[in-house]
Design a protein around this nucleic acid. Sequence first.
DNA 1: CGGGGATTTGATCCGTGTCAATTACAGTGG
DNA 2: CCACTGTAATTGACACGGATCAAATCCCCG
Lengths: 247, 247
Amino acid sequence: MTEFLLQRLGKGVSAAGQAWLEERITHPRQFKQGHELVYEGDTCDEAYFVLDGIASRSKHLAGGRRTILAFLLPGDFCALDSALGARMDHNITCETPCSIVSIPRGRFREMLAAHPRLATNLANDVLLGGAIQRQWLANMSNSSLKRIAHLICELMIRMSRIGLSEENSFLLPLTQHELGEALGISSVHVNRTLQQLRDLGMVRTMDRVVVVTNLTRLKVLAEFDESYLDTPFPSVERFSPTDEPSY
Amino acid sequence: MTEFLLQRLGKGVSAAGQAWLEERITHPRQFKQGHELVYEGDTCDEAYFVLDGIASRSKHLAGGRRTILAFLLPGDFCALDSALGARMDHNITCETPCSIVSIPRGRFREMLAAHPRLATNLANDVLLGGAIQRQWLANMSNSSLKRIAHLICELMIRMSRIGLSEENSFLLPLTQHELGEALGISSVHVNRTLQQLRDLGMVRTMDRVVVVTNLTRLKVLAEFDESYLDTPFPSVERFSPTDEPSY
DNA sequence: CGGGGATTTGATCCGTGTCAATTACAGTGG
DNA sequence: CCACTGTAATTGACACGGATCAAATCCCCG
């Protein structure tokens, strides 16, 4: 598991540097579905790295409702701001059971200071997260059908990049209610819209597996332009499952 | 004008440092309304600092439509990613005539290297921008009435912090169409919703001036919690109009 | 005085929310 | 192994918020 973090974190860092990193990384912890890692308003003094499961950034709204602002997949960092001493403006929640590495502020700073390249990698991640955030906001202007289609396209790509997709399918252990919270639509409508996508022959969902039956048409429908998911710094290569192991 | 940038940029930087900064800052340029400073996909090799006017982050959608992702007010930076070499995933546009300082990549890096405190200030700005972005996304789950109310609350505070509000009013030289692009609703509905706010006795708009006639009730309606606009790093004081000049 | 964009208003249509009820299913305990 | 229970998925009926289309001012500017 830890190799995964190293591959993402340590890309471009010397072998010695990677050993140094590995020493400093605490063992992953397991969290139950629904566990809140960080609350809005907190400064939790550590950063998190998702090894397994799906976490989220979320905010609570009036009436007990909730919005999901981002999905955090394996390989994603979160609460970096908090680790640098900033107040969190949103919650970090485990939407499924999660395996997560936490990095205390002190160690985090050590790591950054010792490995400038690591800082670049992180900056890249932060910018990518911002780009995804903006894309989500832009999507809110589209119909719910396009929105779901777009989210599925995004997740398909993000999942495949971390080796968590097969053929044209991936595991998405989220309820339709949670999808609704992320898309800003009711769970009832999520259900109907997914059926629409099935009837259009683009996506089938069963159990918790999403099968994209026609990616090309799905992308057209969603007006999906993949480039926002590219690494913001052209010079930074990101880890991909096909890479040679670098250790 | 440049003092303004210095106050924002150079908070906590020595007097000598501020002089050094001032030397390096090029003269502001004037741009017409509608001018696109940076296009999606570009790497423009410079950062921008808004001195006067309102700019925006925007994306183009299908059918010639457009989404506004953020408003950039005087005192805001933009295209920092681009200045660091990243590809822009959105456009930066002047929504009104603007006076803007551009900082070429080389100088930008010099400045950062020479003044760590400046980097902290910028990081603070970036985090604040992210927080606003997330809040906008969260707001999309609310009714258009709440959305407009929330945007007005936010702009009221941001404007007042830079000394651009009087009493309970501020100048907002945007068309209802542009407000719609930012809120994800049609201009016709913006119009009707603004009338609703007037009828509720909370906001009046005339010419391009927004008058908040009952901020308390407006905040309640919008479920507005100001804290997301606070400086993310508690240790970083931001420039405010009531501060002693620091030069 | 004329012209073009912005605001305003009216009428109508449709996408989604909401409420409610049913079904499917997984986990639990007897 | 099966009844019991709670949660998620599904379906139907209905109401309503906003979009859309059109037309009528309004108003700034040349």
